[in-house]
Simulated assay, not measured.
Amino acid sequence: MSKTKVAIIGSGNIGTDLMIKIMRLSKVLEVGAFVGIDPESDGLKRAERLGVPITAGGIDGLTKMDGFADIEIVFDATSAGAHKHHNEVLQAFGKRVIDLTPAAIGPFTIPCINGEQNLDAPNVNMVTCGGQATIPVVAAVSKVSKVHYAEIVASISSKSAGPGTRANIDEFTETTSLAIEKVGGANRGKAIIVLNPAEPPLIMRDTVYCLCDFADEAAITRSIEETVAQVKSYVPGYRLKQAVQFERFDDSNPLFIAEMDKVFTGLKVTTFLEVEGAAHYLPAYAGNLDIMTSAALATAERIARRQQNDRIVEEV
């Protein structure tokens, strides 16, 4: 069976890494177009050298390309503001859209949590790099105990944060916080991102704090470890940095949650994660890029397989 043709809008770090991943790893996808707005960008030049059809004309240039009609799935790796316009144009042409910006127009999608639920949605949102890394842990705790509050801190190398990432900082915190609640299952979510200027650059590190009801600590640990293994199946560099930590708060030492203006008693679950990139385009410290592009690739492949199966059924 022929591969599903896809287009990538955004010739920066994320778009270029995604293009290379698809070309090296995917058995069901083929890059039919690579789109940017700067003809001198490294991404566009690299795509051209690799024989991928390119345009520096943005979304309008994409719709005018000879092979646009054959494109079935479009990845948007630009910015939250630009995505709104891109999505309107692409929906008018009936294209399936995978949003790698924090625009959050379509349903939040994290492969190991709800990857099968949104395959028919016209637009799916990949949340953020911090969301892809940490929300699976919140969801894992939620499977065992009610999570009243979850806070994540994503620390990434400043060198791995391009113009698009920097332009989306506010959207990052808002989108990730909302997804912690809607996908992770927490009553209240909070997200913090740190751009670390350290030299040599540090790889992505994430800390997840969950305040939940008292529960079997071994069961929570087991749920987190199983979830980490699921994420690792499509993000090889994803791992626990150390053992899951627990702290108990009862009536004798309650914890005040300022964000919720309430006193909490129960378990505090702390999880430390590390995400090493596959270095397909940028160095291994750019795990924040790797987890986004890996999650988007996994989602697109599921959508493509669904479309291919539907066509087989129709032909029968």
Rank of each mutant, 00 (worst) to 15 (best):
I105M: 08
G237Y: 07
L29V: 11
N253S: 08
A77S: 09
L25A: 05
A33L: 02
S177C: 05
Y234V: 13
V28C: 11
V124S: 08
I14Y: 07
G32Q: 12
A33V: 10
D251T: 13
T207P: 01
E315H: 06
K5I: 05
H85G: 09
G43L: 06
L178A: 08
D66G: 08
G287M: 13
T265H: 10
A104I: 01
K45N: 15
I312S: 03
G36E: 09
F172R: 02
L29P: 05
I193N: 01
V244F: 05
A304Y: 08
T271S: 14
G57P: 03
S145W: 00
V275A: 14
A80L: 14
I71Y: 13
N196G: 06
E30T: 11
V269C: 04
V208N: 04
E30Y: 05
L282M: 14
L267V: 13
D70Q: 14
S155D: 12
T55S: 11
Q242F: 01
K5A: 10
D99P: 03
E217D: 06
Q242E: 09
A140Y: 00
P283M: 00
V269R: 06
A121I: 07
Q91E: 09
S11G: 11
A286G: 00
T101R: 02
V231C: 03
A161R: 03
F256C: 07
G81W: 02
D38T: 10
R305Q: 15
L119N: 12
K232D: 06
L289F: 05
A286V: 08
V316F: 14
I135M: 00
P201Y: 14
I14R: 07
F34E: 11
E151V: 06
G277N: 09
M292T: 08
A300E: 01
E151H: 07
E217I: 02
E88I: 10
F249L: 07
V97D: 03
A80R: 13
G32M: 02
E171P: 00
Q117A: 04
T128E: 04
L240D: 13
S157L: 12
K143V: 04
K27I: 03
H83E: 03
K268T: 01
G61R: 10
I291E: 08
K64Y: 11
E30D: 11
A278N: 06
A295E: 02
V235W: 00
L44I: 15
I22L: 04
N125P: 00
I224H: 04
K143T: 02
D17P: 00
E171C: 02
I59V: 15
N187R: 10
E217P: 02
D76M: 05
D70S: 13
I220S: 03
L50Y: 09
